[in-house]
Simulated scan of single mutants.
Amino acid sequence: MVSALTRLLLLTCVILPFHGAEKLRKALDRKDVEYEKYNSCPQGPAGTPGREGNPGHNGIPGTPGIPGRDGIKGEKGECVSEVFEEPWKHNYKQCAWNSLNYGIDLGKIADCTFTKLRSDSALRVLFSGSLRLKCKTACCQRWYFTFNGAECTGPLPIEFIIYLDQGSPELNSTINIHRTSSVEGLCEGDL
């Protein structure tokens, strides 16, 4: 059997070196702190600032934020019944004449019947042809469209006017001018 003295000696040999090592470690730590405290270099004055560097590259995009919350509920709207109108249809007519040389000075030149389908639309009219003015003295002539016997008022009358100065009195001449012309316009409302 191992005696008590041998055990005590064995324990002392095993535990004592650990206890001494711990004391040594603590002493070394204190020396490092003291070295840094007393043996570090003092800091001198700040140097001149350096120049600005080149801009860097764009970084990685951030993650999307948290979605916002729903707003408060709005007021209830009115119940409106929808009115479905008929689809818009083309409604056009072309009137043409071979010869309008009646030799008349006043009155209706030609007639063209047309039925508008809607009162909230406009009627587009166009005349393209020869207009004649003949006179010995200064004269003026006006050509215009009428609808059901009346001139258009919305937006404006559709008309064409020619004025001629007098002919040559010493030669007793007559001015007889033919002009290819166009008269065009829109007439709105009920016709």
Rank of each mutant, 00 (worst) to 15 (best):
A46I: 01
E78T: 15
V183Y: 00
I15M: 09
P55F: 00
K31S: 05
G56E: 05
T63R: 15
F145P: 03
C41N: 13
K73M: 06
G62F: 02
G65D: 05
Q166C: 01
K134A: 13
F127C: 02
P17T: 03
R124V: 05
V14G: 04
C13D: 09
S99I: 14
V125L: 03
F145E: 07
P169V: 08
Y92D: 15
I161F: 02
S173E: 13
I158T: 01
G167H: 05
A4Q: 08
L186Y: 15
G189H: 12
N54S: 10
L123Q: 03
P87M: 07
T180Y: 10
P61Y: 03
G68Y: 02
V83H: 11
E75R: 13
D29Y: 05
E170L: 12
E159D: 13
S119Y: 00
L16T: 15
N172S: 12
G65Y: 13
Y38L: 12
G47K: 13
C140A: 15
Y163S: 14
E85A: 12
L10Q: 08
F147S: 04
P64H: 08
L24V: 09
F160P: 00
C187G: 02
F160V: 01
R118N: 13
E85I: 13
K37N: 10
T6Q: 10
Q141E: 15
A122N: 01
T153E: 05
P64I: 06
P55G: 00
P49H: 09
K73T: 15
L106Y: 15
Q94E: 15
E78V: 11
T180R: 09
K116W: 00
L123H: 07
S119F: 00
F84P: 00
I66T: 15
E75K: 12
D190N: 11
R132H: 08
L131G: 04
A150S: 14
N98Y: 06
C13N: 12
D120Q: 09
G47T: 10
E151P: 01
I15F: 10
Y92T: 14
M1H: 07
N39Q: 14
T137K: 06
G53A: 11
L106N: 11
P61D: 09
R51K: 10
I15P: 00
I66A: 05
Y144E: 08
G74P: 02
N176G: 00
N98L: 08
F114A: 01
P55T: 03
D111T: 12
L100I: 04
E86N: 13
S130N: 13
I177N: 08
T137P: 03
N39E: 14
G167A: 14
G77A: 05
